[in-house]
Each structure stands twice: as structure tokens, then as C-alpha cells.
Amino acid sequence: MKVPLNVKNKMFQKPAKDSDKEFKIGRVNQVKLLSFPYIIWMVGFIIIPLLMILYYGLTDRDNNLTFKNIALISDPINRKALLLALELSLISTIICLLLAYPLAMVLRKNHKTSNSFIVLIIILPMWMNFLLRTIAWQNILEKTGIINSILQFFHLPTLNIINTSAAIILGMVYNFLPFMVLPIYNVLVKVDKDVINAARDLGANGRQTFLKIILPLSIPGVVSGITMVFVPSLTTFVISTILGGSKIVLIGNVIEQQFRLGNWNTGSGLSLVLMVFILFSMAILSKYDKESEGSNLW
């Protein structure tokens, strides 16, 4: 019932240049006061805590300024863990993108049923604990697991991927695929049908329409999907613990271990290195995400 009304409004309003004036709750200026609890909360529990990491990362136990914690990243073990984490998260991001894009395209076509599908792939699985879901992959991948039982039944050679990098990549793709599907789907449904029809009218074939119209318009969603998959994959320590056995160590495992052992300064220093990568991907994201102000995520 609300939808037609909005469409009507949009039709009559000029595309607002001054989007500041869109809507204000009355002439009441005090409405801005409503953001105060939020601002205080975010400063207290987001900004100051991040500065704490900076402080711990740049000091030693006696609170003296030092770069030793950050330099520890060049330690062979830590460097290997970082490089491996980068490699695995890049691979799983690419796989997620290759799986998610066609899926989002299909969903876009029948987007009346897609909303419930989105719930089905994102919200519902979360009610089965994420650790348990990852543990269930052990059952599937193990030497005597489900896949191998099926392969043996057909007398095919068995797979041995549990406790390898491949299992970790699979775990990453499994856990983070929905976060790639959602942003891509969100931009694809917003692509104006008239633009696509215009391209077809002007003689473009399906492939050209995709390459010249749909793909460029969906880039913001792709970029946001890449960040949403890359960052958690790069920093995970749970998936590698469960599916990688004890031999494979990612940078997330190293940091978690440092904190468990009480070496907060070292852990913070390594987190700072990690944050460089996170900030880098955030910067790329914000470049593409200016217009939507991030509000199209859900």
C-alpha cells in the first residue's frame, strides 16, 4: 500500500539536488539531539578502543614508544601466516565472486521471490551456530566422511582435503558467500530496466548489454561484496582452527594466540598491520560507495 504512494512522490519531486532538504522531522531542531546517545556510544566503544590498539601496538610493556611490535610481522612465522592468509582470502574472494554474480543475476530476474531467498541464505543459517556449521564440514570432508564414502561407493579415488588449505578456502567460501550475493543483488535490482531495453533497442546483443551496461553499473556492489568477503576471510582464526588442523597458521591465529598468552602489545602491533589491509579495502569501498552512503547494505 505504501509503495504506490512513494512512486507517486518520486514522480512529482524533482530529483533533489539538495538532498539535505529531503525530510526533516518538522521544524524541530532538537531532533538532532536524538543522535547524542549514539555518538557518545560510538566514540566510547568504537573510536577510543581503536585508538587503544594503536597505543598498545606502538608501546612496550613499560609504556615506552617502540616499533618492535609492528616489526614482528617480518618474523618468518608471522610473515608466512600473513602471506598465507592473504593468499587464501584472495582465492576465496574470487571464488565467492564467481559463484555469487550468476546467482545474483538469476535472483534479479525473479526478484519477487528473492527477498525470501535472501532470508533463506543469510538469516536462517545463522540460527545454526556458525562454529557448528563449520564443524559439520569436517564430517563432509574427513577421510571417512560423506564425500569420500560417496566416492568410494563409485570406486573413485578419494579426496584428502581436510586439514589442508583447500578445506580452509572451502570454509571461507561457505561462510562468507552470502555477503557477496547480497550487495551484488542489491545493485542489480536497482539497474533501470529501461536502460537495458534501450541498449537492446539500439541493437546490442545479450553479451554486449551485459558487458557494457549491467556489469559497469554493478561495480559498486561487486566492490562492496569483495570487501565483505575479503576482510573476514583475511582475519579469521576460527575457520583455520576447525578445518585446518593445527598445522596451518593464519595471521588471525597468530594474533589470537598472542592475546591468549597475554602479549597484548605484540598482538596489537600485528593487528595494526592487519588494519592497514582493512583500511585499504575500506578506502576502495568508500570511493565506490559515495552515493548510497552505505545504506544499501541490507
Binding site: P49, I53, M228, F237, S271, G294, L297
Partner: peptide, 15 residues
């Protein structure tokens, strides 16, 4: 939303 959970968790613990 964009930050890594591990960083958010650690930073909150430190504060």
C-alpha cells in the same frame, strides 16, 4: 560492519 571482528573484539577488550 567493515572492520574485522577480531580487531573489534580486541579493541573492546583493551578499553
Amino acid at each position: 560492519m567493515l572492520n574485522a571482528d577480531i580487531v573489534t573484539g580486541i579493541s573492546l577488550m583493551l578499553i
